[in-house]
Design a protein around this nucleic acid. Sequence first.
DNA 1: AACGAATTCAACCGCCGGACG
DNA 2: CCGTCCGGCGGTTGAATTCGT
Length: 270
Amino acid sequence: MGRQPCCDKLGVKKGPWTAEEDKKLISFILTNGQCCWRAVPKLAGLRRCGKSCRLRWTNYLRPDLKRGLLTEAEEQLVIDLHARLGNRWSKIAARLPGRTDNEIKNHWNTHIKKKLLKMGIDPVTHEPLHKENKATEKSHGDHLPESENHHVQLPETSGSGTAISEENSCSPPENCSGDESHLLDSICDDFPLMSFLLEDQGPIVDAPWEFPSAGQKQTFDDAGMTSWDEDCGWLLNCQDFGVHDFGFDSFNDRETNMLNTIEIMGSNKQ
DNA sequence: AACGAATTCAACCGCCGGACG
DNA sequence: CCGTCCGGCGGTTGAATTCGT
């Protein structure tokens, strides 16, 4: 009858990932690359659903992820893109290097939505709220494909005069024009990850790993771990594998520098 | 200091669409 | 053309954390 579950529910673990699981997943992907997520749990020795593995990797473990809150420029870009694309978070995320759709979605729901409401802007339609009230349920209830009723409201920044289509919405930043490319430039200039790292706020792979940042040494022993060096070895080895080996062909010099920085940090931690 | 409320965000769920036999 | 499989997406949930009283 119903659709088969994506994976055998029996014996499949759910909930937060442990450092040990992360480690297994990372070392598997670094060794074998991203392929056939369904088979990953079995091959990596994880009692997880393949979907869960993919999600964990793309949303949290990928070495090219930025951490921390979105910058002002990024936030502005998200608002702009949302106005034209609607809740197509993956499309929006594709325009924000190092950010995931989940992260942007969460940020939208927790921060940007409120911000816009405070400013008197409807976060759904991007119209002023009082105007929205006049139109009442016209746009609510079943608000049309978002891109259709959004792009007309905003000044076109893409030059073409048409909304971003599915097909071209994933284009790399270089293809952006006008304000967007400007915004992306400023995002790149900001490069929050670097400042994040340099501020000594701990490693890029934070929380679940429970690395011993200053004053938090206890968790490692508890988890049966050994040291920063040992557990971050995988990350430091990224360059040994070569980013192309695990699907980060889009790495550019900046990201390579990032990995170098991580390596330096790794050695500094010793 | 203690408690409840509010907020945040990692993770899950179910659906959709493309690829493939 | 049809059915199945799989990856990806967007919406939602709930545990953990923060904030206010």
